[in-house]
Design a protein around this nucleic acid. Structure first.
Length: 557
RNA sequence: GCCCCCGUAGCUCAGCUGGAUAGAGCGUCGGACUUCUAAUCCGUUGGUCGCAGGUUCGAAUCCUGCCGGGGGCGCCA
């Protein structure tokens, strides 16, 4: 019996009780029954507090209510015992057969166990990373790559159609400064004000020069200054962008759409969106600029959309972009942004509202900062000082799996400290190996079982899974769908990682106390076969969970 | 001044849509491999859940106010 089935069973018992006038309640009072795994294993397999929720409404006290309900539950097939505890909890123990059946259910589902449909038919646009092509992706962007991709995977697991999108800011002054910086380093000039420094500028500039020479282009340095800068802009951005794409690919993140901000302007989409907003009165003119009345939609002040010099402000692109995303079919637009952008939430929602979309169709997930730490001391990342750590640096130091896991296992509300030396040397400090090891172990057990000629299909008797560690492992497996559902609902990928650590622990304990393959001359029995089902079910859930985090599930370690 | 995030064991963090005796990893100390992988398991050590009020049968969890740390409040992008 899965927890969902148990929950339904309890609900049915409540409704039957109401029917028989055991409970003075309306059927409409009966909520979805929450069943939870009790912290204390002795309390049973599952527990519910439904009696405490309903007692008041039914005009009785929780314990009395629970006692009546327990009498009904105890009669049900598959429930071994139900008892009232504490202030009115009901602790339920499943019959071994009913609990153990889950192992077969999971294996038969063949990777689909834990799937849900809460986002069925929803088109979800998830925009993340979106780092400017003025330099490599640093640690912060790396975090969003890990988190964003994992959230996308989770939403897909709940039947959403997800579009992974990268907004490429190739328009505006930062790019101009980037181009000037490239030019300056080749021309032997000082870096421009607000320009970029660092080795990668040198590298990209050199690459542009080499490309130009090989292609037989005219030496950029012999061209007029503006033309040369334009030359570096076009080539430099392309090279930088390819480098970013390569890093992301190595990181296991592939975007469906790389969207160019420039295209919003050159295609006239910005102009069209703004004209429309002017017509609808969402924009007004003041002090020579055009403003969005974002205060109508909860922003603390109105925002300039067209500057008094006639140029579009950054938000103009965002407005056209929100509309473009919706026109491409998105029901929900999710943005992952760093904590330094939290002031942007109201603006984006206001923009959506002004365009006539439901502000709830724009959802901004704010993630806290990633800090670099060395020898226990925070290190300020500075491009000038050359202390910037990039996605590539992180992967080189600890590998993709450890990097993605470390960045995914914390709540995005929590800032993260990354110590490269620590992650690289004391790899045990990173629980990814613990989870992966458990998976490799289950794969090893399966290999050995095959050698012993143990075949799952030859026998399965759920009632044989009676060991204490088996009840615990089955309980953990039963939790998986709920954990996934919550991770999806709250957009919290870290719940998956934490769950996997618990599951791996339950599996290791089980492994330590029981055996799948026979000892010595023992004959292969249904106990061995049934345990193989359980082993394989666990391996499958570990693999599914790791996959949702974008982490590999090795067969051997 | 206003807004967002955080404050839980020595350290790093779960738990927060109210529930039972607040958990895990690392660290300390001590155990377990002639039998499916010891990257494991078992035991031990460890807490005014920042502080003060409030709501509730019940608060780490919800509300208010303070304290401390981080980030943000552009006709920059």
């Amino acid at each position: 019996m899965t927890p969902e089935q148990l929950s339904e069973t309890i609900r049915a018992a409540l409704l039957a009780g109401i029917d028989d006038s055991d409970f003075q309640l309306s059927p409409f009072d009966v909520p979805e029954v929450k069943v939870e795994r009790p912290r204390q294993r002795e309390h049973g397999d599952w527990a519910t507090n439904v009696a405490m929720q309903l007692a008041k409404k039914a005009g009785t006290n929780p314990r009395e209510f629970a006692t009546t309900l327990v009498e009904r539950l105890a009669e049900i097939d598959g429930i071994e015992s139900a008892e009232v505890a504490g202030p009115g909890f009901i602790n339920i123990r499943l019959a071994a057969g009913a609990a153990g059946e889950l192992a077969r259910t999971i294996v038969r589902a063949n990777g689909a166990y834990g799937r849900g449909d809460s986002l069925k038919d929803q088109v979800v646009n998830v925009e993340f990373v979106s780092a400017n092509p003025t330099g490599p992706i640093h640690l912060g962007g790396t975090r969003w790559a890990a988190v964003g991709d994992s959230l996308a995977r989770l939403m897909e697991f709940h039947d959403a159609r997800v579009i992974r999108e990268y907004y490429f800011n190739d328009h505006g002054s930062q790019i101009d400064n980037f181009a000037k910086s490239l030019y300056a380093v080749v021309a032997g000039e000082d870096a421009p004000e607000n320009g970029y420094g660092g080795q990668y500028i040198q590298d990209i500039a050199n690459e542009v020069m080499v490309e130009a020479m090989e292609a037989g282009d005219r030496d950029p340095l012999e061209r007029p200054r503006d033309e040369a800068i334009e030359f570096f802009r076009e080539r430099g951005v392309r090279l930088m962008f390819n480098e970013i794409k390569d890093s992301l690919k190595d990181f296991g993140v592939e975007f469906d759409v790389y969207f160019h901000e420039e295209s919003l302007h050159s295609s006239g989409k910005v102009e069209r969106a703004l004209d429309e907003l002017k017509a609808s009165g969402a924009l007004y003119e003041s002090e020579g600029a055009w403003w969005l009345k974002s205060t109508d939609h909860g922003d603390e002040k109105d925002r300039v959309v067209i500057k008094s010099d006639g140029n579009a402000a950054y938000i103009a692109g965002d407005i056209a972009y929100i509309r473009d995303k919706h026109e491409r079919g998105a029901d929900l637009c999710v943005y992952l942004l760093g904590a330094d952008h939290h002031g942007y939430i109201a603006r984006l929602k206001a923009a959506a509202a002004a365009l006539g979309y439901d502000p709830a169709s724009v959802e901004v997930i704010i993630g806290q900062m990633v800090n670099l730490v060395k020898d226990g001391q925070p290190v300020r990342m500075s491009k000038r000082a050359g202390t910037v750590v990039t996605m590539e640096d992180l992967v080189d130091a600890v590998g993709v799996d450890a990097a993605r896991y470390a960045l995914s296992r914390s709540s995005t509300d929590q800032s993260i400290d990354i110590d490269l030396d620590l992650l690289a040397s004391a790899t045990n400090a990173n629980p990814v190996f613990y989870v992966q090891y458990a998976h490799a172990r289950s794969a090893g057990v399966a290999r050995n079982a095959a050698e012993y000629g143990i075949a799952r299909e030859d026998g399965f008797d759920a009632a044989l899974l009676t060991h204490e560690s088996e009840a615990a492992l089955l309980g953990a497996l039963g939790d998986f769908p709920r954990v996934i559902a919550q991770a999806v609902e709250f957009r919290e990928q870290h719940r998956v990682a934490r769950y996997l650590e618990e599951l791996a622990s339950a599996f290791n304990q089980w492994y330590d106390r029981t055996r799948v393959t026979p000892l010595g001359d023992e004959e292969v029995t249904d106990l061995h076969r049934t345990r193989l089902w359980l082993n394989d079910a666990t391996g499958m859930v570990l693999r599914t969970g790791l996959h949702l985090l974008g982490v590999s599930a090795p067969e051997r370690m």
